[in-house]
Amino acid sequence: MDWLDRMNRVLDYIEMNLEGEIDYKQIAQMANCSEYHFSRMFSSISGVLLSEYIRRRKLTLAGFDIQKSDDRIIDIAVKYGYDSADSFSRAFQKLHGIKPSEARQNGVHLKAYPKISFQISIKGDTEMEYRIEHLDFELRLIGKSKLVKTEKAFRMIPSLWSGAKKDGLMEKLKDLSWENPKCKLEGILGVCGKEAAITDDEFAYFMGVRYDGEPPNDLEILTIPPSSWAVFPNIVEAWKRLYTEWVPTSGYELANLPCIECYYGPGHKPRHELWVPVIPK
């Protein structure tokens, strides 16, 4: 399948560049998605952050090199992208539990993390609930956006929501979100960028709600054109299974619009949903 081929080509690229510079933008382009979405997709599927996977592979090969060669430790450190013996030693010891210099001793234990590969696992015992929503009108959202560094998005976005609770933005959005319901997308929304292809070093993360009235002066407006959406209950679970189980076999592909995480009010079932923009293949 095209999706699996792209993902495994990415892994091949990483493997061939462990001794050099790995370009995260190029990785995302090879996977045909944004840096942020690829990082999220990778961690959801593999259970490990992309940066952590690359670090483990580099230090696995470094361990092999130390045991098989007489090369200087500093030369091996530089080979795998570390600019000092100290930084390499700390990373090596964190992964392997011993110092690089100790790895040459007879009988020591090291850890080897092999190259991973992506496959579709067919499971018939667990259904994946979804529905298709066709919104034939423009979504007009109001809220606030913050710049997020792409490579740090996983850490920065939760902190943005924590800040929204403290500064009153969350309460303001709640007060606005249930006025004049127009569609099922009525809740607190997290929108990543303005299009799927986020290739810059940073992007705007929008926290808002759907609202048709005149916005308060301190809130921004974001519009999303009419589109079809695949909607999944349970955001965390949906992210884990979206790319491995649903997209490859659904007959749909992702549209060039942002995914939306929707958090609903008290008493709503489910409590949250992932809205994914799609188009038929």
Rank of each mutant, 00 (worst) to 15 (best):
A77E: 02
S84I: 03
L49Y: 11
F92W: 05
L59G: 00
D70F: 12
Q67F: 14
L61G: 02
S69D: 07
Q67A: 13
I45F: 05
I45Q: 04
A91M: 13
R56A: 05
K58T: 09
F88T: 02
G47M: 07
I54F: 12
L50F: 07
G63Y: 08
Y80K: 10
I54P: 09
R56G: 02
D70Y: 09
Y53M: 05
I76E: 00
R55K: 11
L95P: 00
R56Y: 11
G63N: 04
F64Q: 05
Q67M: 15
S46Y: 01
A85N: 03
S43Y: 01
D65I: 15
A91V: 12
L49C: 13
R90C: 09
R57V: 11
S87C: 15
R56I: 10
Y82E: 03
Q67E: 10
R55T: 07
F64H: 10
G81L: 14
R72H: 06
I73M: 06
I54H: 04
I66S: 04
K58R: 15
A91K: 11
I66R: 05
I45A: 13
T60M: 14
S87H: 13
K58H: 14
K68G: 10
G47K: 03
R72W: 06
D71I: 14
S46A: 14
F64V: 07
H96W: 05
D65H: 14
D75H: 12
L61W: 13
F92Q: 03
S87Y: 14
K58N: 09
V78P: 00
S51P: 08
A91I: 06
G47R: 04
L50E: 04
S69P: 00
V78W: 03
L50M: 15
S44Y: 03
L50I: 09
F42T: 01
S46L: 11
L61N: 06
R56V: 06
